[in-house]
Amino acid sequence: MKRVRVIGAMMMAVVIGFTSCQKDDQPTPAVVASNDFLVNGAAVGSFDLFGFEVGGRVPNTDSVTNRWDFGMRFERIIVNSGASGRGNAGVQIINQPFDAVTTAPETGYAFDTSATQLAVKPEQWYLYNSVTRSFSPIAGRTFVFRTANNKFAKMEILTALPADDNGNLVTPPTRPTRIKYQLRFAFQSNGRNF
């Protein structure tokens, strides 16, 4: 497929919006944000780290802290606990759209038991297309995290696009060195309601 181009100019815009949920039983509103996350596009090498409390990228020098909650490399996801980190993070994927997930479950959070037995299985959140050789995040799959510091967050992966080191999108046959994810997430520092 030498001529397939990714039409995604609108993805280039970094949309960061802060809205607040006004609910009576919600003392602290969850912080909802969107963020671009540029990660290592190779199957080997280091993971790029993300922290919900920080609201974005956490440098790899902080990999042995609780500042990050999950990490990504190509289409692999690790969480900061168990075999992957010193935190207490866990994750589960709910087959509901982002907005429909209003409460983080109390239990059911998975963690990485080894470098190959990861909490997040590929088929849970993306579809690989053997014809276009692209992978598309499945709409309506919401990640719910218990963060490294025992707070809660929900997240959806809006897009996953091939990019170069500077975050510019590339088209086949140019091989991407990075994957540019657009994430939407809500962080709740107090309780399990979003």
Partner: peptide, 15 residues
């Protein structure tokens, strides 16, 4: 009622 989609790239998922 188990399948969701987005009306444009990056839009929220809907049933």
């Amino acid at each position: 009622g188990e399948v969701f989609g987005r009306d444009r790239e990056g839009a929220p998922a809907r049933l």
